[in-house]
Nucleic acid binder design. Sequence first.
DNA 1: ACCTACTGAGTTTTT
DNA 2: CTCAGTAGGT
Length: 622
Amino acid sequence: MAIVKPEQWQPKGVASLEPAALQAINENNHNLCVVASAGAGKTEFLAQKADHLLSTGICRAPHRILAISFKSDAAKNLKDRVRQRCGPDLSGRFDSLTFDAFSKGLIDRFGALIPAPYTPSPDYEIAFPGFRDWDDFLSRHGYRHLSGKTLEKAVARCRLPIATLNLKNPEWKDVLTRFWTEYYQDGDVTRLTFPMINRLVNYVLSHDPRLVAGLQATYPFVFLDEFQDTTFGQYDLLKRLFLNSGARLTAVGDNKQRIMVWAGAMPDAFTTFTADFNAKQEALISNWRSHPELVEIQHAIAVSLETASAKPEAKRVKDVDGDVCAIWAYDDRASECEGVANWIAAAINSGEMTPEHLAILVRFKPYEFEDELGPALASRGVRLRNIARNPEGANIAIQDVLTEDVTQCAMALIRLGAFQKAPDDWHTIIERLSLIWGLDPDNEADQEALQNQLGSKLTELRTHMEANAPSDALCAALVQSVLEFIGERELRAAVRSYRRDNDYIRARDGLTCLLKESAEGETDWVTVVNNFEGIGQVPLMSIHKSKGLEFHTVIFFGLDSRTWWTFEPEDSEEMRAFFVAFTRAMQRVFLTSCRGRGNRLAYVDDLIGDVGVDRVPGPNAA
DNA sequence: ACCTACTGAGTTTTT
DNA sequence: CTCAGTAGGT
């Protein structure tokens, strides 16, 4: 592929980039701290920066770019965007992962190098202990006077090996030793949480500096997305890997969207990073997501979080009539559900937006809202999808099934089977199969053979799908047949995380179960495939899960004092969570509150009331 | 047996 | 903010 001279490089696929973005793309002699408020086009900025590095040869093979995101769908979106911008060849050297997936990958590769007694067994299990489990562990071992929360934090923060630690209270050394011998290595199974994986990675890297040298040699460029939510352990690892190395780090994020401090995120990640890595500052000032009226309200909230916030330039054009923001007040939860369901059904039927472009956001317990709102919508012919729910029989959330490699490959084929035309899928599957089967994309004979094989498989699939209506058995058979064609062994060799049975089976079962669920009561495959992808369904999720996503219209349930019982106006995670929820919308935001769920949230009501958001009676069930 | 006043817990994530 | 649990009183 021809190399572009840096001075001749142009952004691809977009009309223009703002000056700060161009500045940050061309700056490769410093570490960078890019402040990007909601809708500033972080993903696009990172994708363009990746394209710049790869297509100019500033990042030349075999060097790679490491991009760390917080959620797997964000990691996948970024990867896809880079592929669109610079093609499958160059984007093959762009590794887009979550912090946890990156750390886990290192354990899967180098776990055997971890000294005893910390060596994990290769078939370790991933655990998500709740606060009760930590307390139970302590009381089982006679430490009833210590708190589980403190133990959880200590495990996440203390370096290994425990024996060399200098702790003020020597009792904690006993507790941690116990924990790492009895919780971690429990009989035959090794049980790991992500903070523990992080500590183990840190340990193995300190124990074997060649690994650090190897990773530094591989990754001269590192992107860090949503940096405001970096945990202490993650930052510790980052320093171990890249501090004082030649690597150029680009940290992107927004302090106003810092909503993970409760789970161990650093309260001042940007400040610490800027000091340690001597990073240069840039700030993106556009808002490509929301139209001016919404940006005005967002700005009022932003100023309450950070007095010095600059007002972003709104780039989106408003394309809806009527209110763009209001607080819908209700008396009780039943009329709230019915009223909102009615409004949604009417909005969808009028064609002003499709179900998947609307989102229901809640602060917590989405499954409770699913039970209440789901039936109200269903009776009006609208389906609700709780994206955090596991499909029946699976051990993975719907949202995560969609980003799995096994899903992407299998569904590209199944979509090609269901639809008359799907050129994108044809290209995707050709690219992926070339990679999985180890074919040269430039070898014509190889490519022709691949196209022929794919063609005859598709003929077989289409005949089979036309002749048979969707059913549980057929869904399972379809997945089986498609995976046999792709080659499970080849797929698992190509996708590192699938080498462990645990991880591969979890993903494959997730795919099968979601497909079965999508086929329930359906008679044609096109609908099944759409159901699978969530097309025609209103997504429901927590604010935390909505981070990084955007929707045409957002309805937030529960602007009231019971939902926000921890609410404090000053430097509060709650206010930032509210900001995150609010800034997901491109066109409209409606906030419900009902007396059955407590009083009005006066602080927020007044804040947005000042910029013209009215408290009105919510739409009726009619 | 019943009343009042007080205390603490509950929630959001990551393969 | 709400709910469950508890201590201490009648």
